[in-house]
Amino acid sequence: MNIFRLAGDMTHLFSVLVLLLKIHTIKSCAGISLKTQELYAIVFTTRYLDLFTTYISLYNTIMKLIFLGSSISIVWYMRHHKVVRRSYDKDQDTFRHYLLMLPCLLLALLINEKFTFLEVMWAFSLYLEAVAILPQLVLLQRTRNIDNLTGQYVLLLGAYRALYVLNWIYRYFTEENYVHWITWVSGIVQTLLYADFFYYYFQSWKNNVKLQLPA
């Protein structure tokens, strides 16, 4: 495993820990999009079906279980915890996230590495992950005061995506037969969504004005 991949996994892990910290210690999920969290829970559930069929490494298995368990528990907390759910910005978090799922499924049926159930689900999870952050970005744009933890959560997620792109470049040049077009294209689309957002985020921060994304 190269340094970019490890750093990518660690920033991903930290992003989840930051979110769990906010939920457990402050008992708040203000500024966090339940829509995005639900999409992530679906992303990891459909991607890690190979937990039952393929063993890669202990590291791989543990990380998969962490991402599965944390994403499902975050959704549970936001929906059902009697204190946490009260801080959820329900009226602002209006993105119709289920509409993203059908096109991703159709694309996965058409474009996959192999036409098997596991591979179609894997491709679906990649396409869905690419757009899963959209409800969160829309919510951030609407929320007047973004607290530090929410800002750090999105920053860590963006870093995770950027580091994975570096990891792919590194692997392409150092490993033979390492070509994964589906992963790369959906990963780059996802990274560009973050980059575009951060551009406006830092602009508004620099000029000290409320974040306004172009329509």
């Binding site: 991949r5 393929t54 490494s57 990380m63 991402f67 590495e113 591979e119 894997w122 990891n167 992963t183």
Partner: peptide, 10 residues
């Protein structure tokens, strides 16, 4: 038995 595609990334 078909070979499954191995995904070693998360």
């Amino acid at each position: 038995e078909e070979d499954a595609v191995q995904h070693d990334e998360l």
